[in-house]
Amino acid sequence: MSAATTAPEVVARTRRHDLLGRQGGVGTVLLSLIVATAAYGFFFLPDGAGKKRVGQPYEAPSGAHPLGTDDLGRDLLNQLLVGAGTSLTLAFIVAAVTTVLAAIIGGLAGIGPRWLSATIMRGIDVMLVLPELVLFILAATFLGQSFGIRAAILALILWPVPARVLRAAVLTTWSRAHVEAARAMGAGQAWLLARHASYLLGPLLVPVFVRTAMRVIIYDATLSFLGLGDPTMPSWGTTLYWVQVNGVFLSDAWLWWAGPPGLAITLTVVALALIGTSIEDRLNPNLQESR
């Protein structure tokens, strides 16, 4: 095995015929399972599942309650299933909004007039200096924790990073030979975007969406864990908040109380990360240019 790798080797790696490679495949299967779980929780569980008292407090797992109950006698398995729906819905909505925001702002910064571009970029610089987590905590404390507000806060704070990535991509695309040729022949920005750049830029929105969904899941869970979750909606982070508040680690109950929601968060993020990484690998311009 030599240290240096030749370009053809890398190309061979990216030219595999399967869509996303093995990692992406594992990620997709994992995510589908989680989405299916969330759908089950949404469609087949009775109203108020995971919110209502259904047994004695602190019950150990049994046939009726496979993951036991919490300190208020609520079913932990139901909380897990309903929480999947809450987390995924939030993640996908915020990711969609953020991707659109980032595409518009990043696009304007890339091909808009110079003053606009400079203003946007300085604005992004400033936003990136402010620590995200602190902003989230601040906003959640003062503005409230309901679903809509949580979604708005997340989208408004998460767009700068992807916007910068997309701006860079727009600039790169605009300097490509075929785009420059079209521009030399008098094509307008809109036509360039629609006809000559969209097929290069469009796919880049997919990893932006996936990465944002990932960050939403983590940040939402973190906020809920810190006690800044919507108390009326079962979610993975909120379940873990009660674990912390009740000092559940002192007994064996942490195994069925703290284990499953944490594992669920980790698996969801892993699934999204696997998908994101494999898409990014395929889109990596460095690797494509060496073809």
Binding site: F225, L240, Q244, V269
Partner: peptide, 9 residues
């Protein structure tokens, strides 16, 4: 992907 707070727990 592991949430910090969960690992800490």
């Amino acid at each position: 992907s592991i949430p910090q707070f969960w690992l800490a727990m």
